[in-house]
Design a protein around this nucleic acid. Structure first.
Lengths: 214, 214
DNA sequence: TGGGTACTGGACTGTACAGTACTGAGTTGA
DNA sequence: TCAACTCAGTACTGTACAGTCCAGTACCCA
């Protein structure tokens, strides 16, 4: 893993690596906006300011390119697990959970993440493996982290929880569902202000605590 | 509205109408399974056992055919509003709400509905009007019905609710989110048994009542 | 400075597909 | 039974696109 090259797009990257990055950036934008079938390799090459030949030197296939793009984009989706784990030590359940929820929704309800989600749902039939992988990685890991943390909080006597996984999923969706669902159907439009998102978070936390607080 | 023709696919339909129905049925299946771009007019004609000429006699365009298909499929999505409205008179809140939730999830989490949802999300970029229309019609109307009913129950002193719409959305997604989200990413596989769905419904109702019951 | 590697540009192949055109056959209604 | 209509079958047009090929050019390293 040559992280240097990834984190700093400098000149010293080498020509080949630079081209490769240009291709991936172009392809990411196009795939996210226009989908798999809606994106042509000619477009990718043109937007990356690179010849088609070069595209095919770096990626054997359109499919392989798509794969690489999705994995890259999914990796960059905010990893929330650490933040969630830290919350297990809270001394102020209600306030900290509210803060956690606000950060969670702000992280997830972002154009990039939503586009990625739409794309994966759209292509779940054609690329079941990628869809499954993403599902387990992105929402799955966070919900697992919630489950762990809730279990610890139950151990500390702060929550009353039988099924931590179920409760974690309920928590996540109580917060995210409304804006997420809407965003799935309304492709482009700017949807919610931060204040809106905070309201969803707060209402979700309120309901969750009503059901699970000791 | 010649409902006769729709409800009974009899011989007396007339040749032309019969063909039209065959085309729509074939196209519905193909679009739902393979998406808009993944479906060719040749396939539609072949599956409907009809010549391409005939397809284009009934539908000027691929796009227009798609439109007709979606509207037809969306209309057949279960209308739940009456059932929800009837629940406003309940004498047994917890039990009846549980029953309502179970029916709700069983109705919504069906292959057809899920495929339609996937398709619409996938094509929301290309057909924003259709996506918007469906969004307002299918989940929207049901949630509005929940909101009305919850407001009435609040009037009867059975629930404590400030924002009926928000509470209704929370209720709907508390019940549906988990299986719905999973279904979006796992295209084909049979997912949940009725017992699983009932469990989601029951858990959702439990949390909802903990937060909103007086 | 020279030699190898990577890139460019554009032409090319093969295929898939939307939509049209046309001929001949079947259907329907008077 | 005849005339008008509809359909099947198929061939065709035009376009878009994935992937290849090749000749020439820029870059990089010794």
């Amino acid at each position: 893993m040559t992280d240097l090259a990834q984190t700093s797009p400098l000149q010293e990257e080498g020509r080949s690596a630079r081209k490769r990055r240009a291709i991936m950036e172009a392809a990411t934008g196009l795939f996210l906006r226009n989908g798999y079938q809606g994106t042509s390799m000619d477009e990718v090459a043109a937007l990356a300011a690179v010849s088609k030949q070069t595209v095919y030197k770096h990626f054997t296939d359109k499919e392989q390119l798509f794969n690489a793009i999705i994995l890259g984009a999914a990796e960059r989706v905010g990893d929330f697990t650490d933040t969630v784990a830290a919350f297990a030590d809270t001394e102020n359940l209600e306030e900290d959970l509210g803060e956690l929820a606000r950060r969670y929704i702000t992280t997830v309800i972002q154009p990039r993440t939503l586009q990625l989600r739409r794309l994966l749902i759209a292509e779940a039939g054609r690329f079941p493996a990628i869809a499954r992988d993403y599902y387990q990685r992105a929402p799955g890991r966070t919900i697992d982290a919630f489950a762990d943390t809730f279990q610890k909080l139950a151990g500390r006597g702060l929550l009353r929880i039988d099924d931590p996984s179920g409760a974690a999923a309920q928590f996540a969706w109580l917060i995210l569902s409304q804006p997420m669902d809407r965003a799935m159907f309304f492709a482009d439009e700017q949807q919610y202000t931060p204040a809106d998102l905070h309201r969803f978070a707060d209402e979700g936390v309120r309901v969750f605590l009503a059901a699970y607080r000791t």
